[in-house]
Design a protein around this nucleic acid. Structure first.
Lengths: 196, 196
DNA sequence: GTCTATACGTGGATAGAC
DNA sequence: GTCTATCCACGTATAGAC
C-alpha cells in the first residue's frame, strides 16, 4: 500500500503545494487554511510543507510572492489617460478585483492583515509591485510621488475593504459608473492635483 | 488546594472575562489571543468562557459589542464645522486613533476582518454606531446620505489601514497637518460636494 | 534530496462530577 | 455555576526509508 521514494508520475510536489495553498489561504484565511488540509489537497504528506517551505508562515509568504496581476496593468492605464487617470484606473481596478484572480488577491490580503510578519510582506509587495510602477508613470516631480501614491493607496484600499470585505451598502451594490464618478476625482487630485 | 463552588469575594466572572478578552484580542489579534490565556488573566477556568459565551467566536462578538468611543464625537464635530467638516473630522479621528482606546479599536478591527461572522458584526457596528450618527448630522438631502457616508467610510478606513496597519511611508510618518490638508478636501467632497 | 511515519506540545471544546 | 478530565485538530519536529 504505502509508497516509498518520489511520487510516481513525476509530480511536482512543491508546485502542487503552492497551488493548493493559494486557494486555501484566499478562501479560508490564514487560520482557516490548515497545513494538513493543504497537504491533503495537494496529495502530499503534511511534513512536506515544512520540508519545502519551513512552516506555515513561510508558505504564506511564498504564496504571496506568486506572480499577481495588478502591477503592469495599473502603470499602463496611467500612461494612456494622462489628464484624468482616476476614471481609467478605477475601471481597470474594479474589473480586476471582481475577476477570479482579483478575488483571490483580496482574500489573500484579508488573511494577511492580522499577522505582523505577513503585513510586512504585504507592505513590501505593495510598494515594489504596485506603488513603484505607478510612481514611475506619474507626471509630477519625483519628490512628490511617494506622498501622492500613498494617498492614492489609502483611497484604493479603503474602497476594496468597504466594497468587497465589509460590504457596506449602498457601496457594495453600486455599479462601476457610480463609483468612478464619485471616486475618480479623488484619485485625480491625489495623482496630480493640489495636495499640500 | 482546589476550590469548589463560586469564587470567593463575589467576583463577576463574566465581566472579568470580557475585560481580559478585549485587551487580548486588540493587542494580539484573534488567533494570538488564546482562550486559555484570557481565562488565566481573568483568574477563571478556561471552560468558563465556553460556559458564559459559547466559544471563542461568541466571546469576540461580545467584546465587539462593548461600548466604544467614536460615535458621539464624530457627529458633534460635524455640527461644529458645517462648511469644511473634513478637516475637523480628520483631526478628531487621527487624535482618537492614536489614543489608547483608539489603538485598541484598530486592533479589534484588524483581528475581525478575516472571519465572515466577525466581519458581519463589524459592519453592523459601523453602520449603527458610526455611519448612522454621521448621517443624522449631514446637511444634504436624506436620500443622498447613505451613498455619501459610504464614500466617506472608504477614505477613512483606507487611511486607518495604510497608516496604522500596513504602515506605508511616507504616510505612516506624516504629521496630522499634512494629512488634513491632503485628505480633508476628499472628505468635504464626499460629505457635501459633487459626487454624481 | 525526497518522502513516510510517528510523536510532542498547545489550542478550542465538551461531558460530567460537585 | 464552577471545576476536572478528556478529546480531537492543529503546527511542528524528528527519525529514518528510498
Amino acid at each position: 500500500m504505502a509508497r516509498r521514494g518520489p511520487r510516481p508520475g513525476g509530480a511536482d510536489t512543491r508546485a502542487d503545494i503552492l497551488v493548493a495553498a493559494e486557494r486555501a489561504f484566499a478562501e479560508q484565511g490564514y487560520d482557516g487554511a490548515t497545513v494538513r488540509r493543504i497537504a491533503a489537497t495537494a496529495g502530499v504528506d503534511p511534513s512536506m510543507i515544512n520540508h519545502h517551505f519551513g512552516g506555515k508562515d513561510e508558505l504564506l509568504m511564498a504564496v504571496l510572492e506568486l506572480p499577481m496581476d495588478p502591477q503592469p496593468m495599473v502603470a499602463a492605464v496611467l500612461g494612456a489617460s494622462p489628464t484624468a487617470p482616476g476614471a481609467a484606473l478605477l475601471r481597470r481596478a474594479l474589473a480586476a478585483w471582481e475577476s477570479g484572480p482579483g478575488q483571490l488577491t483580496i482574500g489573500m490580503l484579508r488573511s494577511s492583515l492580522h499577522r505582523d510578519r505577513t503585513v510586512g510582506l504585504v507592505r513590501q509587495l505593495l510598494e515594489r509591485r504596485v506603488l513603484a510602477p505607478i510612481m514611475a508613470e506619474m507626471t509630477v516631480p519625483e519628490a512628490e510621488r511617494p506622498w501622492r501614491v500613498s494617498l492614492l493607496a489609502t483611497q484604493m484600499l479603503g474602497l476594496i475593504m468597504m466594497r468587497y470585505v465589509i460590504r457596506i451598502e449602498p457601496l457594495a451594490s453600486a455599479d462601476h459608473d457610480q463609483i468612478v464618478t464619485a471616486v475618480g476625482p479623488t484619485i485625480d487630485r491625489y495623482l496630480q492635483g493640489d495636495v499640500d
